[in-house]
Each structure stands twice: as structure tokens, then as C-alpha cells.
Design a protein around this nucleic acid. Structure first.
Length: 471
RNA sequence: GUCCCCAUCGUCUAGUCUGGUCCAGGACACCGGCCUUUCACGCCGGCGACAGGGGUUCGAAUCCCCUUGGGGACGCCA
């Protein structure tokens, strides 16, 4: 049995988007699953729109996703000789011909066809003229006039196309550069690609490409057209639905493993399983379980999955990943060991790394800024007594062990007659500035005696200030 | 307009090929409860779907047809 060889052929006209990432993933996963090969090819025949920045952005995104290629990257712009050779061959064999119809004429032709209720296509003016190569002639592929072309698609089943629907499409522009439908085939043939998994939007291109295989007498690859990813309004996912660039998700604090888990699971399934590690995916991925219908991208579910992956990630790893996000929050060069302790308290309650970093800020701050609501609700007169008592108790403790801390709080409870809940909330606000946070004892153990005393004392002073200014 | 594809909870989906075990299962979201020093986590429970209509069949979410709805493609873009 020959190796499965898949490929991902992005065109460098922008960043890698969600849909592209998903087809890359399917191809990569299938290659890994079958112990085959995965090829990366950059489709840059459109010189006007291709940029180096886009190429770099695509590499960057692929790297983040953890998708590695076994061959390439190949650049179509460097393979022009190969294409030319095949074009000449097709023309010589009578499978293609030169055409001098102007684009203006074609436009008129298309408009007329539309009006008559037909499909806009080339009328074949130059098809049998036997024109020789001239400066501004294009090369057209000579499509069969009748019959059908049947696509055996592994995800969609058999799709039958009437060859009459196809027209003599251009394979080489008047400037001499070859076009997409042609180069794809030549590349796939010369790179030995035998499995093509791509977006649904390519279905209509497939019969054209199959015809070229036939003209060249080369066996067809296996095709699998996967349904597209839609936005919440069920139209093709685009910028107006929110972030579509892969790296934007990285910057929002998603874990690559969570992201690929979500993307693959959108349109593919393995029974009821929702959570997959990268290894799971490689082990379980198969073409048979790809769904036939398009799916809506749902960030809520991605978020939930990300939270799960965060919980499953070792603390040390998370800490390293969190550091850049902490820096974005203005925390410079935090010490790893300290970050690890912080992460331990935040990991179970964070949906993204960005959120985790935001929630971690108070651990590092010199002064605590109280959230308005928190201040109003908890730092009031009633809190003065327990906070003052707590400062007194804490001052007597040398080591801030969990046991000692509990004793201190218990003492405050007894002396004030308040329940722990009534004491903990003001303390939480004093320590974090917010009403929601990890457990009080955990926080105290991490920020340490000096800062705790300082923060609680400052809260006491703050309450006194407030009551004075009220008078 | 023409061609192609698709159709199960709000969303992702299992089940469809090989009709009965499905008065349809899971997950996210939402709602309620438990746990609890807050928020989360976790646990328990609830809400919620076979687009419609015809067939075929003893029996259909599953097979066939039509309708409707949605998506995609119609470039000297890829």
C-alpha cells in the first residue's frame, strides 16, 4: 500500500484564517494518522496579490498550531518552467488551444448568457481556429462537449457533473502565467499528492481539474470536500463575524491544542467524545467521520474547550505560557516559581490565558485599586471592626501557615461575632480590589505576610477616610 | 439566472450507509439546586430537535419523491 500524501496549499494573500486552518488540520491529521506525508505548498501565481508578509504570517500560524510539514514549502512562482512544459504538451496533444478573445468581449458574452438564463461561459470562438501562440493570447483547456464527469468524493459521495456545464477555461494568462485550476493539478501530480482534502467551495473546480488529469492520462487522487465554516448568521465566516485570523486566537489566550480540538470537532466527530488531545486526534481522525453539512463557528464552545485544556495543562507549562500575557498587563519579568503558584489558583477558573493574566494582576500589584462596586459594598463601616481585629491577629503570627491563618480568622470570628463570610469578603476586597477571586487563604499564602498586612491596613485607612469625608 | 451541496435541540453533534434496541443520546449555552469565605471548578436536575408534505414498509430520524429553507460556485482570484 502506498503512503497517503496530503497537502495544504494556501495562497499568500493574507493571514491564515480559521477555515484554512481547519483544512490544513484535516490534511495534516490524516497524514499523521496514516503515517503518510504532509506537503506545504504556497500558491503564489497571483503575483499582484501575493506578499512575503502573508507567507510569514502563514508560517507563524502553522507553527503555533503545531502543524509541521514533511515536504516543502514549495512556491509555485519558482515552478513556472514545469507548468510551461505541461502547457506545451497539452497544446501539442490538442487538449488546449490559443485564444485571442479580449476580456471585454468575454464580459459581454457572460452578460448575454446570464440574461438568456444560462450559465456564463466561453462560447468556444477560438476552439477550432488552430491559432498559433501570439503575445496576448491565452491558453484554454479544451473541455469535452458532452458526457459527464463523476466525482467520487469520500465525504460527499458521488457527484455528477454534465460536461456541458463546463467551459473551455483558461489555463495560461496572456502574460504567460498559469492559472489556479491548472497549476494545482500539475503540482499535485508532480508532488505525488494522492489525497486532496479541501473546502466545499472547491467542488465546482474539481471536474475541471479531473479533466486535466484525464487529458494527461494520470490517475485521479482521492478527493474529500469538507463543508465550510459559517458565521453565526450562517454565511461564510468573515471578518464581520469577529476574529478570523488564527493568530488572533493565539493572542486572545487560546491554547493551540484547544483550538485544534475545536476546529476539528467542528465538522468531524468521534461518537460522543468532545475533548481530544493532539495525540487523540491523530489516533482517531478519519475521513469517514467528517460530516456533510456546514457548521457555525461558536466561540462559546471554543472557550469552554479552552478552559478544559487549561485545566489539563501542567502548571509549569501554563506558567511559561502566561508570562507574555502578564507582561501585557504591565508585569515585567515575573519570577517563574511565583507565577506557578499564582497559576495554580487561577487555572481552574480561567477560560483563556488573557483572562488568567488579568485576574492575576493583584498578586503582583504594589497598590490595590478597588473596583467601585466592591468598595461600596464591602469596604464600609461594618467592616472596620473585623479588619482591625484581623490586622491585630495577623501581626502576632510569625509563620503564615494555613493552620495559623485559620486560627487568626477564627479568633476574629469569635471576637466580632461575625460569620466567616462577613469577614472574608472585606478581606478579599482589601487584598484583591475585587469581589471574586481565588480562596482567601490561598491568596494570603502566596502574597505573604508583609503585603497582606499592608493591604488590610490600607483598607482600614481607606474606610476611615471615607467616613470622615462623609461628615 | 444556471449548476452543485446541505437539512436532528439556539449552536456543535451521535444515530442515517446496514429501517425496529430512539416518545431520539452527548456537549456548549441557558435555567434551577448542591458544595462553599466570593467567583469559578465539581456534582445533580431542567429546558430544548428529527424543516414540511407525500410515498415504500408490519414498522422511518433512518429508504424514495416533491416542496421549502440554507449554503456554495459561476474570474486572464485562489
Amino acid at each position: 500500500m502506498v503512503d497517503i500524501i496530503t497537502r495544504f496549499p494556501p495562497s499568500p494573500t493574507g493571514y491564515l484564517h480559521v477555515g484554512g486552518a481547519r483544512t490544513a488540520l484535516f490534511n495534516w491529521l490524516y497524514a499523521r494518522h496514516t503515517n503518510g506525508k504532509f506537503v506545504l505548498r504556497i500558491e503564489d501565481t497571483d503575483t499582484a496579490r501575493s506578499t512575503q508578509a502573508s507567507v510569514d504570517a502563514i508560517f507563524e500560524a502553522l507553527e503555533w498550531l503545531g502543524i509541521e510539514w514533511d515536504a516543502g514549502p514549495y512556491f509555485q512562482s519558482q515552478r513556472l518552467d514545469i507548468y510551461q512544459e505541461y502547457i506545451d504538451r497539452l497544446v501539442a496533444a490538442g487538449h488546449a488551444y490559443y485564444c485571442t478573445c479580449s476580456s471585454e468581449k468575454l464580459e459581454v458574452m457572460r452578460a448575454a448568457a446570464m440574461e438568456k438564463g444560462g450559465k456564463p461561459k466561453y462560447d468556444g470562438t477560438c476552439r477550432d481556429r488552430g491559432l498559433a501562440k501570439t503575445d496576448n493570447a491565452v491558453v484554454r483547456f479544451k473541455a469535452p462537449l458532452g458526457g459527464t464527469t463523476v466525482l467520487k468524493d469520500v465525504v460527499k459521495g458521488n457527484i455528477v457533473f454534465q460536461n456541458d456545464e463546463l467551459d473551455d477555461f483558461i489555463i495560461c494568462r496572456s502574460d504567460g502565467t498559469p492559472t489556479y485550476n491548472f497549476v494545482v493539478v500539475i503540482d499535485d501530480i508532480t508532488m505525488n499528492i494522492n489525497t486532496i482534502i479541501r473546502g466545499d467551495d472547491h467542488v465546482m473546480n474539481t471536474p475541471k481539474q479531473m479533466l486535466i488529469y484525464k487529458a494527461l492520462d494520470v490517475p485521479l487522487p482521492t478527493y474529500g470536500h469538507v463543508p465550510m465554516v459559517l458565521g453565526s448568521d450562517r454565511t461564510r465566516l468573515s471578518k464581520r463575524h469577529g476574529a478570523t485570523s488564527v493568530t488572533a486566537y493565539r493572542d486572545m489566550g487560546f491554547l493551540p491544542d484547544a483550538f485544534i480540538n475545536y476546529l476539528v470537532r467542528l465538522g468531524w466527530s468521534f461518537g460522543d467524545q468532545e475533548y481530544f488531545t493532539r495525540e487523540d486526534l491523530i489516533e482517531k481522525f478519519s475521513l469517514e467521520n467528517i460530516g456533510r453539512s456546514a457548521g457555525v463557528f461558536d466561540q462559546e464552545k471554543l472557550l469552554a474547550l479552552n478552559a478544559e485544556h487549561i485545566k489539563a495543562t501542567p502548571i509549569k507549562t501554563l506558567a511559561q505560557l502566561l508570562i507574555p500575557f502578564l507582561e501585557q498587563e504591565g508585569i515585567q519579568a515575573p519570577e517563574s516559581a511565583f507565577v506557578e503558584k499564582v497559576v495554580e489558583t487561577l487555572a481552574p477558573r480561567s477560560k483563556t490565558l488573557k483572562e488568567m493574566a488579568r485576574d492575576a494582576v493583584f498578586y503582583f500589584a504594589d497598590t490595590i485599586a478597588y473596583e467601585e462596586k466592591a468598595d461600596k459594598k464591602f469596604l464600609k463601616q461594618k467592616a472596620l471592626e473585623p479588619l482591625t481585629l484581623l490586622v491585630a491577629e495577623l501581626e502576632q503570627i510569625e509563620a503564615f501557615t494555613e493552620e495559623n491563618l485559620e486560627d487568626a480568622f477564627r479568633a476574629v470570628m469569635e471576637k466580632s461575632g461575625l460569620k466567616l463570610g462577613k469577614i472574608a469578603q472585606p478581606v478579599r476586597v482589601a487584598l484583591t480590589g475585587r469581589t471574586a477571586s481565588p480562596g482567601i487563604f490561598e491568596i494570603i499564602a502566596i502574597i505573604g505576610r508583609d503585603k497582606v498586612l499592608d493591604r488590610v491596613s490600607k483598607a482600614v485607612a481607606h474606610i476611615k477616610d471615607k467616613s470622615e469625608s462623609m461628615e
